[in-house]
Design a protein around this nucleic acid. Structure first.
Lengths: 235, 235
DNA sequence: GGTTGATTATTGTCGGACAATCCGATTATC
DNA sequence: GATAATCGGATTGTCCGACAATAATCAACC
C-alpha cells in the first residue's frame, strides 16, 4: 500500500531564490540580455545574505539562464544553448552505460528526419558550411581524430540546417556518445572512410538539390552503415 | 581583422573544484551511491573555504550528479535521471520560442520509433502500466487537465518501455512542451478525446501483441492527428 | 577625440559564528 | 535481549564581516 503521507520537502532559501529569479526569466520580466542586479543588491531585495544569493545564482548560471560575456563581471540573462545542455545529457547517458544499440536506434530515428527537413529548409549559407564540412572529412580522414571530428560536425550541421531546434537539441548529445566508438570503428574497419565519404557526398547533394526523400534515404543508409561497421569491428 | 590573442579564461576556484569532483564521478572513483565527504572535509582537502566548496557542490547537485535521499543530510553520488534533465531542456526550448511545427516534427521522429521498440521489448509490468494509463485517460478524459496528464504519461510509459534510454531522454522534454498546447487542443476540438482514446487503444494492443510495425503505424497516425487537431483548432 | 589615471562597484574568496537537525552511541525500560 | 528514550558530536543552512582583484565609471589630460 502507498504511504498516507509524503515526507515534507524542505526548501532552502537558496533554492527558493533561484526559483524566484528563474520565474522572472521565464515570464520575461527579465529578458534575454538584461543585466542581473548585483549580488549585494539581490541580497538586500530578498533580505538574505550575499552567500545565499550566491548559491542561488550559481544554480541558474549552470543551467545556462545566466551567464557573463568574456571578461565581464556582471551576469546577464541568457538563453540556454543546446551545447551546454547536450553536455549534461551525454554525460548522463554515459553514466548510465547506454549501449551502442540504444545510441544507434536513436540516431536512426533522429538523423534521417533532420536530413529530410534540412533538404527542405537549408539556407545557402548552411549548404556552404555543409559542403565545407564534407570536404574537410575528405581532406583529413587520414587522421582518425580529425575524421571523427568531421563526422560529428557533419551531423551537427545537418541538424542545424533542419531548422528544427527540438531535433537539433535531441541530436546534439548523440555526437559526444558516438565519438569514442566511431574512432575505434574507423581504425578497425578499412572501408569505413570511403563509405562515410560517399554517404556524406550523397546526402549533401540531396540537400543541395532539395530532394527530401533522397536525403532521408541516404542518411538512413549512412547510419545503417555504422551498425554494420560496429558488428564487423567489434565481434 | 581577427585579434591576435584570445582573452584568457579565468577559472574561479569553485568551478575548478566542481570539475575535480565531477571527474572523480565520471571516472568512477566515486561510484553511484557513495556518500560525498562533508563540506568541511572537502574544504580541508582542497585547501579552500567551505563557502567555496559549497558553490561547487551546488553546481553538481543541479546537474544531478549529487543528491540527497529524502530527509537525509549528506550528499550522495547519483546518476542524473532523465526527469531532471528534461526539465532544463524543455525550459530552454520554451525560452527559444520553438514552434508547434518543430515540436510536432520531433515527436514524429521519436515517438513512432519508441513505440516500435516498445512492441519488441516491453516487459509484462510495463504492459500493465501502459494499459492502466490508457484506462486512466478513458476514465478521466472529461477533466482537461487530467486528460492531458494521462496523454503525457502514455507517451512516457511507451518511451520507458522501449528499453532505450537515449530515446527516452530525447522524448522526455517533448511532453512538457506538448502539455499546454494539448490542453487547448482538447478543449477546442470536440472529437479529439475519442480519437486519442482509439489511438491509445490500438497502440497498446499492438505493443501487447508485439506487433512492431503496427505499433509504429498507429503511433504515426496518433501524432499526425495532433497536427490535424492543431490546424483545426488554431486557425 | 582618444588616452590615461583615479575612484567606485562588484565579484571571488576567506574566516568565523550559530541554530537546526541528523547520526550514532549510550542509557533506560519493558 | 529487544526496544525506546536520551544525549553529544557532526553536518548543513544561513548569517556576518572582511579584503584583494578587477571591471565599470568618470575625470583629467594631451
Amino acid at each position: 500500500m502507498s504511504d498516507l503521507f509524503e515526507p515534507l520537502e524542505d526548501h532552502p532559501a537558496y533554492r527558493q531564490i533561484a526559483q524566484l529569479i528563474e520565474q522572472r526569466i521565464v515570464d520575461r520580466t527579465l529578458r534575454t540580455g538584461d543585466p542581473l542586479p548585483s549580488e549585494s543588491d539581490l541580497a538586500r531585495q530578498f533580505g538574505v545574505n550575499r552567500s545565499t544569493v550566491r548559491e542561488a545564482i550559481r544554480e541558474l548560471e549552470i543551467q545556462g539562464l545566466l551567464g557573463r560575456r568574456r571578461g565581464q563581471k556582471r551576469l546577464h540573462v541568457t538563453r540556454p544553448e543546446p551545447d551546454s545542455l547536450s553536455f549534461g545529457m551525454s554525460r548522463a547517458l554515459a553514466l548510465h552505460d547506454v549501449t551502442f544499440t540504444e545510441l544507434w536506434e536513436a540516431m536512426m530515428a533522429i538523423e534521417p528526419a533532420a536530413a529530410e527537413y534540412a533538404a527542405t529548409r537549408r539556407s545557402a549559407l548552411e549548404l556552404q558550411t555543409l559542403t565545407r564540412t564534407c570536404a574537410r572529412f575528405r581532406r583529413e580522414s587520414a587522421d582518425t581524430e580529425a575524421a571523427v571530428g568531421a563526422v560529428v560536425d557533419f551531423f551537427t550541421v545537418v541538424s542545424a540546417a533542419s531548422g528544427n531546434r527540438v531535433l537539433a537539441l535531441a541530436q546534439a548529445p548523440l555526437n559526444r556518445l558516438l565519438a569514442p566508438t566511431l574512432a575505434r570503428l574507423i581504425d578497425r574497419v578499412p572501408q569505413a572512410r570511403k563509405r562515410i565519404q560517399e554517404a556524406q557526398a550523397r546526402i549533401t547533394s540531396a540537400i543541395k538539390l532539395r530532394r527530401r526523400e533522397l536525403a532521408r534515404t541516404w542518411m538512413e543508409k549512412h547510419i545503417r552503415d555504422f551498425k554494420r561497421g560496429y558488428e564487423l569491428g567489434f565481434s
